[in-house]
Design a protein around this nucleic acid. Structure first.
Length: 243
DNA sequence: TCTTGCAAGGG
DNA sequence: ACCCATGCG
DNA sequence: CCCTTGCAAGACCGCATGGGT
């Protein structure tokens, strides 16, 4: 049994101050995927940053300092790290791919569409290209894939507390919701929904007005697998006590 | 996310 | 070392 | 007129950077 966790840390430095290492030590996931690390390559190289014990670590960095970036920690060494060269993924350190033999892991931090749909075209291109990459593994090479991370999209009305009010807001624009529908229809399964059909389960809450206490949130983080791999998924859930 | 202010439309 | 503005979410 | 409805805009918090002193 392999436990894979996804976590948007909103600053790796920040969560280090909030007990990140202690949490990893007690929870002991096999693979831990992070988004929004906001680190620079030299933060790792110069050995200044603390890392969890017993894990190998892999990083992707944005060109822009203090922005975006992903990482994953793994107890076991992957068979291979698959290079991610397309600027759409690489320039902002948004995608990592690793071959774990039983499946291919894709850790991803999907772009925020921003106000006025400013980055929606980029986001749609990102999704199209990601789908191409996945199809190559699944259809051409008959591999299984697990795609996890912060998709920055609430898919349907039950995936956020205020659907009507947010129809014209980033994360719930009709275009990105339809792109995610297309993604799922291409043979990739939202594993959380295999186990839970009800609304009210969220992974992100606005920083304003104590939204988390009142559970006025959005489900924008996902673990997705190709159809053939669904039978191997034992569980998919949201950790509610982690900040 | 929530409050505010303004404008349009119906009675 | 500290403070403030900016970018981003 | 007055009262509703529907909007858009703005403030809000937290992390990280960078410039100034």
């Amino acid at each position: 049994m392999v436990v894979v966790i996804s976590w948007n840390v909103n600053g790796f430095r920040s969560v280090l101050k909030k007990g990140f290492l202690e949490w990893v030590k007690s929870f002991q996931p096999d693979i831990l995927c992070l988004q929004e690390t906001k680190l620079k390559p030299q933060d790792i190289k110069e050995e200044g940053i603390q890392l969890p014990e017993g894990y190998l670590h892999y990083w992707a960095f944005a060109k822009k300092p203090g922005y975006s970036g992903t990482a994953f920690f793994s107890k076991k060494e992957p068979k291979a790290i698959i290079p991610v060269n397309d600027p759409v993924f690489a320039d902002e350190g948004r995608v990592q791919i690793a071959d774990f033999d039983k499946f291919i892991l894709v850790n991803s931090y999907w772009p925020n569409s921003q106000d006025e749909r400013a980055r929606l075209p980029y986001k749609l291109e990102f999704i199209d290209k990601l789908l191409e990459v996945l199809n190559k593994f699944v259809k051409n090479e008959k591999r299984n894939v697990l795609v996890c991370g912060d998709f920055n999209i609430a898919h349907t009305e039950i995936d956020l507390a205020r659907p009507k009010e947010n129809e014209n807001h980033a994360g719930f624009y009709i275009e990105e919701r339809e792109a995610l529908t297309k993604f799922f229809n291409a043979g990739y399964v939202d594993t959380f929904r295999l186990f839970c059909k009800e609304g009210g389960h969220y992974t992100w809450w606005s920083y304003r007005t104590k939204a988390r206490e009142r559970n006025i949130g959005w489900r924008i983080d996902y673990h997705v697998v190709n159809k053939a791999f669904v039978k191997n998924v034992k569980r998919s859930w949201i950790l509610s006590d982690v900040y």
